[in-house]
Simulated scan of single mutants.
Amino acid sequence: MTAAAEPSFPPATARQWRRSEEARGLALISPTFLYALALLFLPVLIVFLYSFWTQDYLTIDRTFTLKNYRQALGEPIYQDLLARSLYISLTVSVITVVLSYPIAWFISFHGGLNKNFWLFVITIPCWTSYLLRVMSWKVILGYQGVMNTGLMKLGIIEQPLTSLLYNANAVIITLVHSWAAFAILPIFISLEKIDRSLIEAAADLGDGPIRRFFRIVLPLSMPGVISAFLIVMIPTVGDYVTPQLVGGKEGVMIASAIQASFGKAANWPLGAALSVTTMVIVTLLAGAIVLGLRLIVRGIR
Rank of each mutant, 00 (worst) to 15 (best):
G247N: 07
L245R: 07
L285A: 09
V280C: 14
V246C: 12
S275H: 02
T283E: 06
V241R: 01
Q259L: 12
E250W: 05
I254W: 01
G247T: 06
G271R: 03
T278A: 14
A265N: 13
N267Q: 11
T278F: 07
L284I: 15
G238A: 07
T236V: 14
P269H: 01
G248Y: 04
V276R: 03
S256N: 08
N267F: 08
N267V: 08
A265G: 05
P269T: 07
M253D: 09
L284Y: 11
V282D: 00
A257N: 03
Q244P: 00
S261P: 02
K264N: 15
A260I: 11
M253E: 07
G263K: 11
I254S: 03
A286T: 09
A257V: 15
G247K: 09
A272D: 04
L274Y: 02
A260V: 13
M279K: 00
A286N: 02
I254E: 01
V246D: 04
A260E: 15
V241S: 04
A286M: 03
V241A: 14
G251S: 13
K264F: 13
N267I: 10
Q244T: 15
Q259M: 14
A265T: 03
I254Y: 00
I254M: 02
G248R: 07
A260P: 07
T283N: 10
I258P: 06
M233N: 10
G247R: 09
T278M: 14
A273S: 07
I234R: 08
L285W: 08
V280Q: 09
G263I: 09
A272C: 14
P243W: 04
T242A: 06
V252M: 13
I281C: 05
E250L: 10
V246T: 12
W268R: 12
P269I: 03
M279T: 14
E250Q: 10
K249R: 15
D239C: 07
Q259I: 10
I254F: 03
A260C: 11
S256D: 10
S261I: 02
V237G: 00
P243L: 13
L274W: 15
F262V: 01
V252Q: 15
P243D: 05
M233I: 06
G251E: 05
A260G: 09
I234N: 07
G247D: 04
P269F: 00
Q259N: 12
L284H: 06
Q259V: 11
V252R: 11
K264M: 09
A260F: 14
N267W: 09
I234G: 01
L284A: 10
T236H: 10
V280F: 09
A260H: 04
G247I: 11
P269R: 10
I234T: 14
A272M: 03
M233D: 00
V280S: 11
L270F: 10
D239W: 01
G271Y: 01
A255N: 13
Y240C: 04
V280M: 13
N267L: 05
L245S: 05
A265I: 05
V276S: 04
A273I: 02
V276E: 03
D239E: 12
G263T: 14
A266Y: 08
T277Y: 13
T278R: 04
T278I: 09
T242E: 04
S261M: 13
G248T: 11
K264A: 15
G238W: 01
A265Y: 08
I234E: 00
E250D: 15
A257S: 13
F262H: 10
I281R: 02
T236I: 13
N267H: 14
V252L: 12
G271M: 08
T277P: 11
A286I: 04
